[in-house]
């Protein structure tokens, strides 16, 4: 009986091994993607800090923001991108790739908050990239941060100076250059982004 089984298996392997391996590969891929999809954590906040020269790592900032904002560690995650550079990159290719990343994140509506050097911030706001913070943040907070507001000529408050945001200063972000942090216009999590900005301001 064992010999018969061995013969049958040998026949199967000889004539159907590629079909078997293909089906096995497809099943394994389905399993992998299925498990990944079921165990995927929901992104509750996406933050991009360009040219920030942070002293703490991306992972440390994500952990800190996750904990301080009270999100569920098991099912939720905060995404922080702090290694991208536009103005300060020593390589043009790196700057171009960082810009592509920035544009894809905004274009796909994933980005909530963005920080960059003031010159770039004002340049990108010309195409309406950032929301008016007076519509999102409480008036008391805006009054407290009056000296750190970034205003446009028509009076919109489009961003805040990181020097007025103690949490960012604690992470060593934007210590030297003039910069701004604002909420992206097409974010689907406006309230959450506003809460996060208030948290960064020490609320």
């Amino acid at each position: 009986m064992m010999k018969k089984l061995k013969n049958e298996l040998g026949y199967f392997w000889l004539y159907y091994k590629w079909q078997f391996l293909t089906v096995l590969t497809v099943l394994l891929l389905f399993l992998y993607f299925g498990v990944s999809a079921l165990t995927e954590k929901k992104t509750v906040l996406s933050v991009m800090l360009l040219d920030c020269h942070a002293s703490c790592s991306q992972e440390e900032m994500e952990e800190r923001f996750l904990e301080d904002m009270g999100f569920d560690r098991k099912t939720e995650k905060v995404e922080v991108q702090s290694s991208l550079m536009l103005s300060d990159a020593s390589s043009g290719n790196y700057a171009m790739t960082s810009l592509s990343r920035f544009l894809t994140e905004i274009g796909s509506g994933k980005l909530d908050l963005c920080g960059m050097v003031l010159q770039d911030f004002e340049k990108y706001d010309k195409s309406g990239t950032f929301l008016d913070l007076s519509l999102i943040l409480p008036q008391e907070l805006l009054a407290r941060l009056e000296n750190y507001q970034i205003r446009t000529e028509d009076g919109r408050i489009i961003g805040l100076d990181p020097k007025g945001l103690p949490v960012l200063a604690d992470c060593g972000c934007y210590e030297e250059e003039a910069a701004a942090v604002g909420i992206v216009y097409n974010t689907t999590r406006k309230e959450k982004a506003g809460e996060f900005l208030a948290y960064l301001a020490g609320e």
Binding site: E59, Q81, Y94
Partner: peptide, 25 residues
């Protein structure tokens, strides 16, 4: 670099970029 966020999923060329430095360093 455009599509991957997690450091654990970086490939070798992306990992090399950290040594490129910037105008300050």
């Amino acid at each position: 670099m455009v599509f991957i966020s997690k450091k654990a999923q970086y490939s070798l060329p992306v990992g090399m970029l950290q040594f490129l430095g910037d105008k300050e360093n």
